[in-house]
Design a protein around this nucleic acid. Structure first.
Lengths: 247, 247
DNA sequence: CGTAGGTTTGAGTCGGGTCAAGAAATGTGG
DNA sequence: CCACATTTCTTGACCCGACTCAAACCTACG
């Protein structure tokens, strides 16, 4: 295997790259050839670590990068004019955070690590430049952003049409499928977020979330001990969610 | 009473173009030079007319184009798995419809004309191609799409945190500012949508919408006769939309 | 340990949904 | 242009899901 140009051979062993990242099929499910992939690699700032509660970025500050979650979990939120926080999304490994500010100079939301979290930072200026030359990447960015729109629409549907039980069932199933994408158990996992966050995200009171969890448990649909969740009756939950939304 | 005027002869002289469109500063607030603008003109399919109730595009059908509203108004909606309709947005002249499906092969929503509406059709394949060569246009697309994400997030906030009165006040003010952008009266306009649509969009019952309208009227905040709306106390409405319950 | 934040449970209240029935606007055909 | 049908809008009465308030219970961590 004689390569004519042995680029980045120094790092290929020790440093991770998009090519070898186990999550690349999630955050980059596109056919970039090895060359293009290298160019992407060059602009990505890897292995940034945030502890629980630390901010990845902050609303109304300059928007310079978006972030791909490698491990851990992130919540994004906006501060409403009334002054309270509204969580707009949870982001798991393989998912991109910050798309709500693409093409805008200012962050529209704040991102906080829910647990110890590592991310890849992608500077937008360089990303936009790269996109110019890689049609596949451009299409992929459009895809990711439109998906973000659809996710948010789904959330709106959930909030405007569904009961507390339905919302929580939908959230559990959304998390379930996202764990499954990563080849983790879809029926037994740890919630990365507090009841409070769930309540805020789903437009409910904490007490209601708590009550629904115990109700589900009493009905034998789930087993929940703190953040340790086991989904027992998947079909029943799906029926309840009436359409598993990608929340 | 006047007889139908002979159909417009589409002379190339009078043919509208993006450059001369009065809405171009809304849907294209970017610095494209004359040359680039011409290239955009070439791919845009102008003057498509839809009557009230007609579909511009339909959910789960192939996604080929997005649309810029020239006159009239459009609502977009998704069909939930429960089978009912959820309106995801209203689109006024100068606004782009269909971004929730960019980069996806399938329409995620259905768009219907709320009244007689004319639109510019923009084929996405050619748009994506054009974007490759026009960095300014790419940035603008990102901007529009991220704005769409933020709009949807705003809706989520409204649905999860605000009362019926606050939601309706917010919608009225949103419409108001959108009329104002077009140099129309921000305080006196016609609602393009039915009460039913408002209720669906805001996650309320029609009866509640009706009640709030009359309550606003009794409080002297607005004057409403059918779809004819006059905003009397803008500041009071703004205070209410913020969630400013004087406690 | 002890303290703070997170979680659960109970009791009481209310905003907004549902059901029902008119009133008004809009459409249709003669 | 009018009578009728149909949709849209309004108003009233009643009820329920989820919120608020309040208090106790965990569990993590310095």
């Amino acid at each position: 295997m004689n390569q004519s140009i042995p680029v980045r051979q120094t790092s290929s062993l020790t440093k991770s790259s998009c090519q070898h990242c186990s999550l690349s099929n999630l955050c980059l499910p596109l056919a970039l050839d090895s060359d293009d992939m290298n160019r992407l690699d060059e602009v990505v700032n890897r292995d940034r670590i945030f502890n629980r509660g630390e901010r990845v970025f902050t609303q109304s500050e300059p928007f310079r990068s978006c972030f791909a979650v490698k491990s851990g979990a992130i919540k994004t939120s906006v501060i409403t004019e009334a002054g309270d926080e509204q969580i707009t999304g949870f982001f798991m490994p393989g998912e991109l955070v910050g798309l709500d500010s693409m093409g805008d100079g200012i962050h529209a939301s704040t991102a906080k690590a829910l647990e110890r979290t590592s991310v890849c930072e992608i500077p937008v200026e360089q990303l936009e430049h790269l996109v110019q030359t890689l049609p596949g990447l451009q299409h992929h960015m459009f895809h990711l952003m439109s998906q973000e729109i659809r996710n948010s629409q789904q959330l709106s549907v959930l909030l405007s049409k569904n009961t507390a039980e339905e919302r929580i069932a939908a959230l559990l199933l959304s998390l379930s499928s996202r764990f499954q994408r990563r080849r983790l158990s879809p029926t037994h996992f740890n919630l990365p977020m507090a009841r409070n966050d769930i309540a805020n995200f789903l437009g409910l009171a904490v007490e209601t979330v708590s009550r629904v969890f115990t109700r589900f448990q009493n009905q034998g649909l789930i087993r929940a001990k703190g953040r340790d969740i086991e989904l027992i009756e998947l079909e029943a939950l799906q029926a309840m969610a009436i359409g598993n939304s990608q929340t």
